[in-house]
């Protein structure tokens, strides 16, 4: 277990380094002067020279890369002041430290994702299990059918409809707005409610169908039949034997969804005009803000790697045959 963690975490460090190197050199292969970009329009050659020196763009590219990478671990100094670890550099656009921007935006994305996840797991797995339990009946057909319809919706379609009904027409709710949880939990909750509900509607359907189909598959397993042949109650067989086997594919999908959502739920954020990580990434990339884009990317990659390790640990917990090595 410990061996596994050490091996995987050290592997993650190597992968992070490779991702950093890859994005860094890819960006530098763009035939454009970053000092000019950072300076903006109407820049005098002197200003460009100053900026070039400030950003260290006059140094050889390998040196720049080295400074960037060591900065993540130890922090580094900029004319704007000391940038403490993990230092991801200074944004060209805003002159802010990239890590500070990410720290600013992340709570929103985290709230959006985790809140949505809780809701769509509860509803999705619940309805899926119900459909599997009542398979072949009207209930099953109703649940399966509606999940079919719902899963074909998209956030950018459903979002505006919900907004126009609940916000613009009736005025029952305010337009979604992020308030920090520590500041005012009630406002935090109300502000996130519409995005959560819309996200949940769409993701729920996916989990309903998955829970239903894996449960039905598991119920055909021979060991489930053995449990019934022992005289165990149907509900016991269902929730102990079949459910345990269904967890593996479900956990896999949760891991994939979570890492996609955490590293930026762009569409959701744009739909509800929320400024989260996804928004940050798009802005950075549109303005060719190299440090910002790289920072968000590395941050996202970090989450994907960590979630992968957590998913593997979950596998080992669920299925004793999985050995962590």
């Amino acid at each position: 277990m410990l061996q596994f963690l050490i091996r995987r975490l050290s592997g993650a460090v190597v992968i992070m380094f490779l991702i950093g190197a890859f994005t860094f050199f890819l960006f530098y292969s763009i035939p454009q002067d970053f000092a000019e970009l950072a300076c903006g329009k109407n820049c005098s050659p002197e200003n460009i020279a100053v900026i070039r020196e400030n950003l260290g763009l006059d140094k050889p590219i390998t040196t720049q890369f080295w400074e960037f990478m060591t900065g993540i671990v130890t922090g580094r100094d900029f004319p704007q002041g000391h940038c403490s670890a993990p230092c991801l550099g200074v944004s060209f656009d805003s002159d802010q430290f990239v890590w500070d921007s990410i720290k600013d935006r992340f709570p929103l994305t985290l709230s959006l994702t985790v809140g949505g996840l809780v809701i769509f797991l509860l509803f999705g797995l619940g309805t899926g299990l119900l459909a599997a339990w009542k398979r072949g009946t009207v209930v099953d057909k109703l649940v399966s059918g509606s999940s079919m319809v719902l899963s074909s919706f998209q956030i950018y379609f459903l979002g505006p409809i919900v907004l126009s009904i609940l916000v613009y027409n009736t005025g029952w709710l305010d337009f979604p707005k992020y308030v920090d949880f520590t500041e005012n939990p009630a406002k935090w909750f109300m502000g996130m409610l519409i995005p959560w509900a819309v996200m949940a509607t769409i993701f729920t359907a996916q989990y309903t169908r998955m829970a239903r189909s894996t449960m039905i598959e598991q119920l055909q397993e021979e060991h489930v039949r053995t449990a019934r042949a022992k005289g165990m109650r149907q509900a016991y067989v269902f929730f102990r034997y079949a459910w345990r086997g269904s967890l593996i594919p479900i956990v896999t999908i949760i891991g994939m969804d979570l890492s996609a959502l955490l590293s930026g739920a762009v569409v959701t954020e744009f739909t509800f005009d929320l400024a989260g990580i996804g928004r940050l990434a798009v802005d950075g990339s549109l303005s060719k803000d190299l440090p910002l884009t790289m920072g968000v990317m590395l941050f996202g990659a970090f989450f994907i790697l960590i979630l992968n390790i957590i998913v593997d640990l979950a596998y080992a917990y669920i299925d004793p045959r999985v050995r962590l090595a």
Partner: peptide, 14 residues
Amino acid sequence: AMIFQDPLTALSPY
């Protein structure tokens, strides 16, 4: 009581 053919699949791995 019943005994099945393939004890590997007939016992729950979990």
